[in-house]
């Protein structure tokens, strides 16, 4: 089956793998850090369950960005039907995957650390919730940059709407 794929489509498949793989890695690590802090907070104060859950959920977004880009690559590269991609577009697809993947890796881990610190701050002083949320949201920007660039590459690299 793989041998029947066009070279461009195969390159896009690598891009999809990189996109979801690295973004999910960062997101997973970040969420692991945030959730262990959340469990610690809930162990001391059961009223922290909702806040802990919010902070634990935040580093999920990077994986969602990677997943979205990967789905787009799979749909528009001819792997899931449709016309196959050329080599140039395939290389663009790798770039798009790397952008959202590596962006999500750093962002996810950073956000996990910020989330766990925020959980600690909120469990110590509940009034810190809003400030904690703002600080936790800041490392999201790197993932958004990666996601935007990936979308732009897909649009102007001849993959979306090709």
């Amino acid at each position: 089956m793989a041998a029947e794929l066009a070279l461009g489509s195969a390159l896009a498949a690598i891009g999809a793998g990189v996109a979801v793989g690295f973004a999910a890695l960062g997101s997973g690590i970040g969420q692991g850090i945030a959730s262990s802090a959340g469990v610690g907070a809930v162990a001391e104060d059961s009223g922290m369950f909702a806040q802990g859950l919010v902070f634990t959920a935040i580093p999920e977004t990077q994986a969602i960005y990677g997943f979205l880009i990967a789905i787009l690559l799979l749909v528009f590269s001819g792997i899931m039907g449709g016309s196959p991609l050329g080599v140039t577009s395939g290389l663009v697809a790798i770039g798009a995957g790397a952008a959202v993947g590596f962006g999500g890796l750093g962002s996810g881990m950073g956000q996990g650390i910020a989330s766990s610190a925020s959980v600690g701050a909120v469990v110590e002083d509940p009034d810190m919730f809003a400030q904690g949320l703002v600080f936790t949201a800041i490392p999201e920007t790197q993932a958004i940059y990666g996601f935007l660039i990936a979308i732009l590459l897909l649009v102007f690299g001849g993959i979306l709407g090709a």
Partner: peptide
């Protein structure tokens, strides 16, 4: 290489996430 470089600092931090959340609750 990217994964190893970025994860290494986290290894020192990771064992403290759970206890520190509980301890900060106690500080509160």
């Amino acid at each position: 290489i990217v994964v190893v470089i970025t994860i290494r600092p986290l290894l020192e931090y990771y064992p403290y996430t759970y206890p520190n959340a509980r301890i900060r609750a106690k500080i509160g």
